[in-house]
Structure formats: C-alpha cells, structure tokens
Amino acid sequence: MNVTIVDYQSGNISSVINSFTEVAKGKVNIEVTSDIKKIKSSDKIVLPGQGSFKSCVDSLNSINGLVDTLKEFAITNKKPLLGICVGLQMFADIGYEEAETRGLGWIAGKVSKIDNQKGKFKLPHIGWNEIEIQKESKIFKDIKNKSHMYFVHSYEFIPEDKSVISATTDYSSKIVCAIEKDNLFGTQFHPEKSDKIGLKVIDNFLKL
C-alpha cells in the first residue's frame, strides 16, 4: 500500500512524516511529495496543514493541478484522505483567518475563530484535551472516549451538517475536533503529537 503525505510547502511536516513512518514500519510505503502522478497512484492521502488557513490554501493553489488531483482522489474516486489541523479545516467552503478565503468546499461549512469569551480562554488552544466521541469512526477503533489528544489552533471548523462530526472537545464551547464523511477523515488535533493514542489513530487510518 502507498500512502502519500502531501508536501505542499506549508508548515512543518517532519512530525507527521516521523509518526507515519514509525507506525508504517516498512509494511506501508510512505511517500512525501506534491508530485501529481504519485498522488494519483497512491492508495491513501494525508493532508497536513500548519500556519493560517489562507497560507495553506494559497500554498495548495500554487502547485499546478494539485487541488484538482486531490478532489478527483477524494471526491470523485472516494479514496481515503485524512486532513490534519488546517488540513481538515480546508475541507470547508470558507475560512476567515487573515482574510476571507475559499477552502476546498468538500464539506459545507466555515472556519472561524474560537470564541474565547472575551479573553476567558487563552488562544491558541494549546495542549492536551479530551475528545468526546460523537459517533463511531473508523479511525477511532479501540480508542476510548475521553482520550487525550494534543491541540494547537485558534480557529475551528463548523460544518453545516452535524452528522459528519465524529468527535468534539471542550474549550469555551464544544469544538469540532474530528470528522468522518464516507472516505473523508479529519482531525483538528495532532495525532502525530498525541503520544501512543495518537499513533493508534494513525494506525487505524493506515489499516483502513
């Protein structure tokens, strides 16, 4: 099996590469690339994302044909894709970080700043928080409700259709922290930085 981590020159993906390589341990071939041909021929895609929504979308768009290739992979061919952090947020129609920016539009919804209740909650939301599992999700197999995951973000994905939400976390309000819609998976938290339990999420994705 070939799994591609999309390297579109946005943010630091070393930890994503390290963790997937650790879990794959030679059984699964991990590619790190933005090469359209390689992405097309892979079995699964991981879309990481760090920095702002706008900078990630701009970086994706700067690589010729990448957005269309991802769309064909995930929407037309319905092959498994995991978005992490801003990688998940970009599934939305629109994001408001830095400037109003169109997302990939794969899951109807928007990405807005977390309401920190006038400074009552510090932003970014950094650290370990419990996830509350809202529905059965393939990537949460053998993962207990209230497991701790590592977060670092100031914006949240608000999908229109709440049935895509697979987990939330409590920080000023119930924040969407994982989604599953058919072959599309996303985590707002960083499985690659969430210790053994995070590696289990990665393992579940690789075993799909």
Binding site: N12, S14, S15, N18, T21, E22, V152, K193, D195, K196
Partner: peptide
C-alpha cells in the same frame, strides 16, 4: 529524539534567524 518521541518538542537557545528555525523544524522540532 523526534524519531522516538511523539509528543511536542520545543527547542530553544541561539534561535536567531529564519534559517535556524527552518533547520530545527525540519529536524523534527514542533
């Protein structure tokens, strides 16, 4: 360290340039 520890890793000391940051992040610092 980054190949063996899967929790966030912060590195400080002598970080002066964008290149310093790039090097540390590429090595696996978060």
């Amino acid at each position: 360290t980054a190949k063996e520890c899967f929790v966030p890793l912060t590195v400080g000391g002598g970080v002066r340039t964008i290149q310093n940051i790039t090097d540390l992040l590429l090595a696996g610092a978060d």
